[in-house]
Nucleic acid binder design. Structure first.
Lengths: 200, 200
DNA sequence: CCCATTATGGACCGAGCAGTCCAAACTTAG
DNA sequence: CTAAGTTTGGACTGCTCGGTCCATAATGGG
């Protein structure tokens, strides 16, 4: 799994590598892109071609995947602490609001979406997004089972399937947001599914 | 709106134009792509550069948008006749199965997705997908209100919002399918929302 | 049959861009 | 201090690909 860390990395080296990733991520989060070039990244991060290939020997794809991993970490972090403790209806509502707020703020720009568009069909790309969705869903499953344990959600409900529905709904809601600029669909899904959890 | 039709198009001309669109669409539906080049399209459709620019003066973007429109028509067509007559629970289930079957058959390849990835941020792109989703949702709204009219769905339910949830859920389900290869999420969303319609 | 219009072939151009390479600057262990 | 290893600069290469251009063939109306 993953590439060996070449040889060594001094403190300075790790800092540069980090600077490249974070800089690229920030750029992708902005309104400009659609396509990033290595020269863009080079300019933004104040580095040279040789540095990029020094720290990401496999080139652009390796770099972008690293950025994608970085961004996917942010996705879950931005939902905390709510996502981690879905133990009451109030908590679910706070989480819902956090998700909507996060994506409303992001607006039409979707860093991960932009990334996937460019790295799209490579093997590593699917892996990154799959891992993210799996973690996300795991949190929801935990939340649902906790609610069931306390008797707030009827026990016959399949937490696995409902959480899958949440994931799909959010994904789709964000996608719609990207083309229409509205969070209507995202909100509608979240509300409908939370209602469904409540037993209407 | 839309470009004027240049000057004239003989029968032969229209045929060629059509051949280009359909050929490009077929190619994008295959397993190969990720990125199409005009030379790919040229090779597949047995045409020359000059023809492409003759029939699509604005170049690649215009061509791809045309392909996207073509594909987006297929999306709805493939759900017919079910999508058009959601007047009973049996009909809803048939529609659900049709959607799942369609996307299962398509598998990881998503022609429209591939298209949007390439044409992504242009003004026309958002318009195409927005139009598609709006039509799709309109069918669902009609279905829900019809069910309400017959008393099969409780009247206080907001058909607008629930249909939005369906759209988002399907979108997201397909997106998950594209990275995981599984229709689990798509099915879970559809089932959860239909349950929600039924009043659990 | 002729001319205006449309359709087609394909050589060519130029920009953009990922990736290579070598030399220079620095860090650090011994 | 020095040698080995790491970091950095940036010129250069090679290729891909959208788009241009002009020449030739087909077509169809009068």
């Amino acid at each position: 799994m993953g590439y060996r860390c070449h040889v060594a990395l001094t403190e300075k080296g790790r800092a540069t590598r980090e600077r490249i990733i974070v800089g690229a991520a920030e750029y992708l989060r902005g309104d400009i892109p659609g396509e990033v070039t290595l020269d863009d990244i080079r300019a933004i991060t104040g580095t040279s071609k040789s540095q990029i290939f020094h720290y990401f020997p496999a080139g652009k794809e390796e770099l972008l995947l690293e950025v994608a991993r970085y961004e996917s970490r942010r996705v879950l972090d931005d939902q905390q602490p709510h996502l981690g403790s879905l133990t009451s209806w109030a908590a679910w509502n706070r989480w819902r609001d956090a998700v909507v707020a996060r994506y409303r703020a992001q607006g039409r720009n979707c860093p991960l979406g932009a990334l996937m568009a460019q790295v799209g069909s490579t093997p590593g790309a699917a892996e990154v997004v799959t891992a993210l969705l799996a973690q996300w869903q795991a949190h929801l499953i935990q939340g649902i089972t906790q609610m069931q344990a306390v008797g707030l959600v009827r026990p016959e409900l399949d937490s696995d399937r409902v959480s899958a529905a949440f994931i799909a709904g959010i994904q789709g809601g964000v996608q719609v947001l990207r083309s229409t600029g509205s969070t209507r669909h995202l909100e509608a899904t979240l509300d409908a599914l939370i209602d469904h959890l409540r037993g209407v």
